[in-house]
């Protein structure tokens, strides 16, 4: 008997994820996005190796130098190499995006599951809380928090995460409400599966694909939010580089008009990362379409 089982295990047709991966590979734009993202991630991680300069150390002999062979993207107002700073800023900006979307997903999933599965009064209370957070004027909150605690990378992560979870919570709740009425849930109950297991073994796995897509788009939003916060001086505090606070230099008119090498690179990085993440999200949405499973 054991041998037959061992044999049967080998006849393992492709899993749902490998099928989704194949569909994803057919999506040209998503592949493009994935490659760009891979390059951005690699240059961010390998930043100290890729350039010889420090992102923080000032060099007052080389202020606002246009691109040369030595400084390929020129230098900024205090003589720091722009290329070095852009690559190091990638580390900060991408990790702020990643961490804050993780916070947002964690809070959103917990609240969405609780509201969607428990229902009744719990659902009512949690959804009103969600509505409240959605209506918060985010800038006012951010300014208040930044003023009270002072701007820091961790504050930026926390604030962005705690302001963006409502959309994920609503998505998860909606999915739970619709999946809860499916016959396979009644079937699980008829077998005697406990409520806890129904929620996490039967319903939750069916929501993962939509959550994945939402998280991807959420990451793009978080990167944008970080950029705008830092641009306003409320996010990542200098001298730590982030794409957003590098753009601050462009607030002065003569830099904006005469020295594009100072503000163009971080701007392009923001656009490129957000665009490629959105392409990846589109690809995931098509690849993980739950209708292709039934």
């Amino acid at each position: 008997m054991t041998t037959t089982i061992a044999k049967l295990e080998k006849i393992r047709p492709e899993s749902l994820w490998s099928k989704a991966w194949k569909r994803f590979l057919r999506h040209k734009l998503a592949l493009f996005g994935l490659s760009v993202m891979a390059v951005l991630l690699f240059t961010a991680i390998a930043a100290p190796v890729l350039t010889p300069y420090s992102p923080i150390k000032q060099d007052l002999r080389n202020l606002r130098k246009a691109p040369t062979a030595e400084h390929m993207l020129g230098t900024d107002g205090v003589g720091r190499d722009i290329l070095t700073r852009v690559l190091h800023a990638g580390r900060i900006s991408l990790s702020v995006g990643l961490v804050s979307v993780s916070i947002s997903a964690l809070v959103g999933i917990v609240i969405g599951v609780a509201a969607g599965y428990v229902g009744g009064k719990t659902d009512m209370l949690l959804m009103r809380l969600t509505d409240m957070v959605m209506t918060f004027p985010s800038l006012v909150i951010i300014i208040t928090v930044a003023a009270a605690t002072g701007p820091s990378v961790y504050n930026a992560m926390l604030i962005i995460g705690l302001l963006t979870w409502p959309s994920i919570a609503r998505l998860v709740r909606g999915q739970f409400l619709s999946l809860r009425t499916q016959q396979f849930v009644t079937a699980a109950r008829s077998i005697g599966v406990s409520n806890w297991e129904i929620a996490f073994k039967h319903i939750f796995p069916n929501t993962i694909s939509s959550i994945t897509v939402a998280i991807t788009f959420g990451m793009a939003t978080s990167i944008l939010m970080e950029a705008s916060l830092s641009f306003l001086g409320l996010g990542v505090p200098p001298p730590t580089p982030s794409w957003g606070n590098m753009l601050r230099d462009a607030q002065s008119m003569n830099i904006l008009e005469g020295m594009p090498w100072i503000w163009l690179p971080p701007g392009i990085m923001i656009a490129l990362s957000v665009l490629s993440i959105n392409f990846i999200g589109d690809g995931l949405r098509d690849a993980l379409d739950p209708r292709s499973l039934l």
């Binding site: 749902l16 396979f184 079937a187 008829s190 499973l293 039934l294």
Partner: peptide
């Protein structure tokens, strides 16, 4: 375990995952 059910819709009664 002593009383089971067979469902009407063979599509939605099996968990796709």
């Amino acid at each position: 375990r002593h009383m089971m059910m067979i469902f009407q819709d063979p599509y939605s009664s099996l968990n796709p995952r």
